[in-house]
């Protein structure tokens, strides 16, 4: 079940002609589930762990980071997929990095211009999306061989899978660490003692460890069930 069987590269090439029946011959849904759940980029493939740990001190930060990631992932894989026939194989890595960097700079400048406070809190981690293995991974493994429409679905799935994990980790860290959610007080300081460790680094590792274990457990059950 964990087999990340590479989707037939030729499938997208001729299959997408009839986008009328379902999304891309019903392939859209299968790809979405595969990329966002069965081989979730963070919890299953353990890619892109750095931002998932670093910016998840608050739920709000996690969501903004997730949105930035979705933007970069969708934008760059779409461009790469459009250019997949014209990019010589030998320089494809450099081409990918250049395109990803362009989108990262766009979102970084956007955050700086309109959400300065958020940009300051996220620090260098927005810029570090460039070296995030998820984007390059989807570009290499999927966008290079598939049609732009399918590449968008795949990138969206990867981005949403990433955001979900970030949101879950951010939820628990903010709730247990500060007793708030999105800045609103949930666990009142009168009777709840803030658990500072959750906001600090060790909390991130431990929450992520339990989350990965939960994913393993759910997917094992999935296998036994089917």
């Amino acid at each position: 079940m964990m087999s990340t069987a590479p989707l037939d590269p030729t499938a997208g090439a001729e299959g997408c002609g009839g986008c009328g029946k379902g999304f891309c011959d019903g392939k859209g849904r299968a790809i979405f589930k595969e990329t966002s759940w069965t081989s979730n980029p963070v919890a299953v493939q353990t890619l892109g762990i750095c931002p998932a740990l670093a910016v998840t001190t608050r739920l709000e930060n996690s969501l903004v980071m997730g949105a930035a990631m979705i933007f970069v992932c969708v934008g760059s894989t779409f461009m790469l997929s459009l250019l997949r026939h014209t990019t010589p194989r030998r320089i494809r890595l450099i081409a990918s990095v250049a395109i990803i960097a362009t989108f990262v700079i766009l979102i970084d400048q956007f955050l700086r211009a309109f959400y300065w406070e958020m940009s300051r809190q996220l620090g260098p981690y927005v810029g570090l999306i460039i070296t995030n293995c998820i984007v390059l991974g989807r570009a290499e493994a999927f966008a290079m061989q598939n049609k732009p429409q399918l590449a968008i679905v795949d990138a969206l799935a990867a981005g949403i899978g990433f955001t979900t994990i970030l949101a879950i980790v951010g939820f628990f860290r903010e709730l247990l660490g500060e007793g708030t959610l999105l800045g609103y007080v949930v666990l009142h300081p009168d009777w709840y003692t803030k658990n500072l460790v959750m906001v600090l680094a060790p909390g991130a590792f431990v929450v992520m460890g339990f989350l990965i274990a939960l994913f393993n457990w759910l997917q094992q059950k999935d296998v036994q069930g089917s």
Binding site: P202, F205, V206, G209, I212, N216
Partner: peptide, 13 residues
């Protein structure tokens, strides 16, 4: 379920 990456994360924590 903790085998592999999960326990390593907790260890790192």
């Amino acid at each position: 379920p903790f085998r592999g990456v999960a326990i390593t994360m907790i260890l790192t924590g």
